[in-house]
Computed example of a mutant assay.
Amino acid sequence: MDDHQHGKDDRADAGDRGDDTDGVLAEVGPRLRRIRKERGATLAGLSEATGISVSTLSRLESGLRRPSLELLLPIARAHQVPLDELVGAPPVGDPRVRAKPVVMGGRTHWPLTRQPGGLQAYKVLQPQGREEPDPRTHEGYEWLYVLSGRLRLVLGEHDVILGPGEAAEFDTRVPHWFGSTGEGPAEFLSLFGPQGERMHVRARPKRK
Results as ranks from 00 to 15, higher is better:
residue 109 H to S: 06
residue 201 V to Q: 04
residue 192 F to N: 03
residue 128 Q to D: 13
residue 191 L to D: 00
residue 107 R to C: 11
residue 172 T to D: 03
residue 171 D to I: 15
residue 153 L to H: 05
residue 93 G to F: 04
residue 126 Q to C: 14
residue 94 D to T: 09
residue 173 R to E: 13
residue 114 R to W: 06
residue 160 V to P: 01
residue 162 L to Q: 05
residue 131 E to Q: 14
residue 106 G to L: 04
residue 145 Y to K: 01
residue 139 E to H: 13
residue 146 V to A: 09
residue 100 K to T: 14
residue 130 R to A: 13
residue 102 V to N: 00
residue 193 G to M: 13
residue 127 P to S: 05
residue 124 V to C: 13
residue 154 V to S: 02
residue 103 V to Q: 12
residue 176 H to F: 09
residue 179 G to S: 13
residue 165 G to R: 08
residue 91 P to E: 10
residue 184 G to M: 02
residue 148 S to A: 15
residue 181 T to H: 10
residue 171 D to P: 07
residue 136 R to C: 10
residue 116 P to G: 04
residue 187 E to D: 12
residue 110 W to K: 06
residue 123 K to Q: 14
residue 131 E to D: 04
residue 130 R to E: 13
residue 100 K to G: 07
residue 134 D to N: 15
residue 113 T to D: 00
residue 147 L to A: 08
residue 95 P to W: 03
residue 137 T to H: 07
residue 110 W to F: 11
residue 138 H to L: 08
residue 124 V to Y: 03
residue 94 D to L: 12
residue 98 R to N: 10
residue 192 F to S: 01
residue 191 L to I: 14
residue 126 Q to M: 15
residue 99 A to V: 02
residue 115 Q to R: 14
residue 96 R to M: 07
residue 112 L to H: 00
residue 91 P to Y: 12
residue 94 D to C: 08
residue 101 P to M: 05
residue 119 L to K: 09
residue 151 L to W: 08
residue 189 L to P: 00
residue 117 G to L: 00
residue 102 V to R: 02
residue 170 F to M: 10
residue 136 R to W: 04
residue 167 A to G: 14
residue 106 G to V: 05
residue 186 A to G: 07
residue 158 H to F: 09
residue 146 V to D: 07
residue 92 V to F: 08
residue 109 H to I: 00
residue 139 E to Y: 03
residue 134 D to V: 08
residue 192 F to G: 00
residue 98 R to I: 01
residue 114 R to E: 06
residue 166 E to G: 03
residue 148 S to H: 02
residue 112 L to C: 06
residue 177 W to V: 05
residue 172 T to F: 02
residue 155 L to V: 09
residue 122 Y to C: 08
residue 156 G to R: 06
residue 109 H to G: 01
residue 158 H to L: 14
residue 107 R to P: 07
residue 113 T to W: 00
residue 165 G to F: 06
residue 99 A to K: 02
residue 96 R to C: 00
residue 159 D to V: 03
residue 159 D to N: 10
residue 113 T to G: 05
residue 120 Q to F: 01
residue 172 T to N: 03
residue 122 Y to P: 04
residue 154 V to E: 06
residue 185 P to S: 04
residue 201 V to L: 15
residue 133 P to V: 04
residue 95 P to E: 02
residue 121 A to W: 01
residue 159 D to T: 04
residue 168 A to P: 05
residue 111 P to Y: 01
residue 100 K to N: 11
residue 191 L to F: 08
residue 125 L to W: 07
residue 118 G to N: 05
residue 154 V to D: 03
residue 131 E to H: 12
residue 153 L to R: 07
residue 91 P to H: 11
residue 105 G to C: 10
residue 152 R to S: 09
residue 91 P to T: 04
residue 146 V to K: 03
residue 150 R to T: 02
residue 160 V to F: 10
residue 151 L to H: 03
residue 201 V to A: 12
residue 115 Q to K: 14
residue 100 K to D: 09
residue 172 T to R: 07
residue 171 D to L: 14
residue 188 F to R: 02
residue 97 V to M: 11
residue 133 P to C: 10
residue 158 H to T: 11
residue 125 L to G: 05
residue 104 M to Y: 13
residue 93 G to P: 10
residue 147 L to C: 04
residue 161 I to A: 08
residue 178 F to P: 13
residue 108 T to Q: 12
